[in-house]
Design a protein around this nucleic acid. Structure first.
Lengths: 150, 150
DNA sequence: TGGGCCCGCAACTCGTGGTTGCCATCCCGA
DNA sequence: TCGGGATGGCAACCACGAGTTGCGGGCCCA
């Protein structure tokens, strides 16, 4: 039984005896022994107390590390997803801003006496925004698709 | 009792009757009724099953919203922090890139026959990168300081 | 060797978790 | 209106499991 092992591990991590722990939880020492050896579970109220005492979640106490790892992997994917996607979204926004700048400059050049020139030539300004936006869009879309299976 | 209310809320959220839920958990309908009315708790094994069935953590089932809210606030702060900070960090990077571009152009202009001009004039290129980098740095630093109290 | 600390096994008690039976209420269709 | 089905609460009952007490074994140290 998973619970007993985890209970024992947490207790020994703190160098407590079963007696000490029993006192903290207001139970007999043998109760603690039984839990650790998998003979029975404590009551719900006591499980909550243990969770507080050790500052671990009840899920961590009751579930296998396998289950928890699966959950952590899933969670970390969801954590990484917004972050990575956000970065690609920023690229899209930058490309859009550059595109709008280019259009703005062209309009001003055409309808006003201002003689504005785009730095770097037409090549960069024609393809730069496009590359950023398409690259960002592809990256963002791929990530979205990858975690849609979830 | 908190557990019973949450159990009922989750069940009704799915439009299940107590009968349906009892079937899913392989217990009698009256057991479900008792849990919801706070007469007793289910066994540990069943609590784990319920947690899986509803895709909520056991902590969420057993703890008050007050306790959980305190924890969620703490977690969401940590979640929002990297995201917002990341955005300010991107601004810093953009500012740095623009600064390097400006320096690159100036060097090429001075040492080669190329006649390159910075679009928009010296004002933007002297202050633009600076504003981005300082703004990003301040934003990033404020967030860092805000959640350092944690 | 004796004492203290730590922990496991067994017997026992009692409370609680789950089941069954019954009933009340509500809603819908004939 | 009546009957049937669905839903859910209360009560009685029982088994089992959670917690307690008693006992003993192992280990370590003076």
């Amino acid at each position: 039984m998973i619970f007993g092992e985890k209970l024992k591990a947490e207790r020994m991590k703190r160098n407590w005896s079963q007696e000490v722990m029993a006192e903290k939880l207001f139970v007999s020492r043998q109760s603690v022994s039984k839990w650790e050896n998998g003979q029975n579970y404590p009551s719900i109220e006591i499980i909550i107390k243990i969770s507080d005492l050790f500052e671990v979640t009840i899920d961590e106490l009751l579930r296998s590390d396998e289950e928890l790892t699966k959950k952590v992997i899933r969670d970390s994917k969801q954590l990484a997803f917004p972050k990575l996607k956000f970065m690609f979204d920023v690229l899209i926004v930058i490309g859009l801003i550059l595109l709008l700048l280019k259009i703005g400059v062209l309009l001003l050049d055409k309808f006003t006496a201002l003689d504005l020139s785009l730095w770097g030539g037409k090549f960069i300004w024609n393809f730069g925004p496009l590359v950023l936006m398409i690259g960002g869009g592809i990256g963002s879309g791929v990530l979205k698709e990858k975690f849609k299976v979830e």
